[in-house]
Each structure stands twice: as structure tokens, then as C-alpha cells.
Amino acid sequence: MGLEFVVEVALIVFLIMFALLAVELKKLAYAVASLGLMSTVLSIIFYILYAPYVAVINLLVYAGAVIVLFLAVLSLMKPGEEEGKGKMYDIIAEIPGGVLFIIIAVILVQILTTSYIGIQFAYGKTLNLPSLIPPQMQSMLQNVAESTWRVRVIDVLIQAMALFVAGLGVAVLFRRERREKE
């Protein structure tokens, strides 16, 4: 119980809150902004869970590039077209989905929190933000790089190729878009 506890709980609360906002906000631009905030919070959580690489990549890709892409797509649409009519929140209309949502949430929390009791969670000695990663963990982080580039080099390369193809595909789709416009 202390500052760390408060900060972490606050982060988790923010995470869920932004996720809910991203889903529920009627105005798409706001929803996307909220999604970006959620990704940022998630990156911070990754960072304090000793996953700095993942945190940085998450920040760059999900909080950065993808959000830009979302906004670019939104800007190509006619303003007003994408927004729903009526109130900002429309929860009553979504009761059946919401009920299912609560059921799943309860069961999942139940399963996840009971199935992994045996695992000793490593994090949690001190919350020392400037040098967050304790020295004994530093060598283990090297393992991440090691395993990315040595053990799994083939699927990393395949991923790079898949991304390249996806990028080309998106470029082609956007291009055709522009052509049709002309």
C-alpha cells in the first residue's frame, strides 16, 4: 500500500475507462483519440512490467501510426457523415450485447485470476521510475533481443515481409481511392 499501488490501480482504471470511452463515444474523432490514450496508458503499463521494447513499439505503432491512419481515414470522409445521430451515449439500445459483455467479463476474470495462482509474479519490489529495471533484470532483457533476432529470426523476417505486403496493399487501395476521386 503506497504510492505504487495507487499509481498502478489508477493506470488500470484509466486503461479500462479509455477503452470504454473509445467504444462508447459517438463522435468518431473523440473515440479515436480515446483509443490513442488507451494505447499510451497500456505502453506505460508494459514499461513498468519490465517490457521496455514492447512498450516503445506499442507506443510507436498503436498510439502513433495507427491513430494517424485512423484520423487520415476519418479526414477523407465527409464530415458529419460518420457520426451517429442523437445522444452521446446510447447504452439502452445495446442491452443484449451489454449483458453478454458482463457475463464474459465475469467469467474471464474468474478464470484468469484462479488459473495462474502458482506463478510468482516478479514485479513489485519498488516503484523507482527513473531506473525502473533492476540490474538483475537487465541481462534478461538482453534475452528479448537475443530471442527476437536469433531464435525467431525466420518469423520476424516473415513478419517484416507480411508487413511490407500489407503496406503495399494499403498503398494500392488508397491509390485507387484517389484515382476514383479524380
Binding site: Y50, A51, Y53, V54, I57, N58, V61, Y62, A65, V66, L69, F70, V73, A122, M137, M140, L141, N143, V144, E146, S147, T148, V151, R152, D155, V156, Q159, A160, A162, L163, A166, G167, G169, V170, L173, F174, E177
Partner: peptide, 25 residues
């Protein structure tokens, strides 16, 4: 720290971004 899990997440982030970009276009 299990390095394999982290590298999987890194790969997954990349692939997910590709999927989302394609879906958006």
C-alpha cells in the same frame, strides 16, 4: 522474464497494425 513471450508480442503488434491498416483502407 520470458523473452519468447515478449517477442511474440512484438510480432503480434506488427501484424495487428497491418491488419488494422488493411481494414481501414
Amino acid at each position: 522474464l520470458d523473452p519468447l513471450a515478449r517477442t511474440y508480442v512484438i510480432v503480434s503488434i506488427g501484424v495487428g497494425a497491418g491488419v488494422i491498416a488493411l481494414a481501414l483502407s
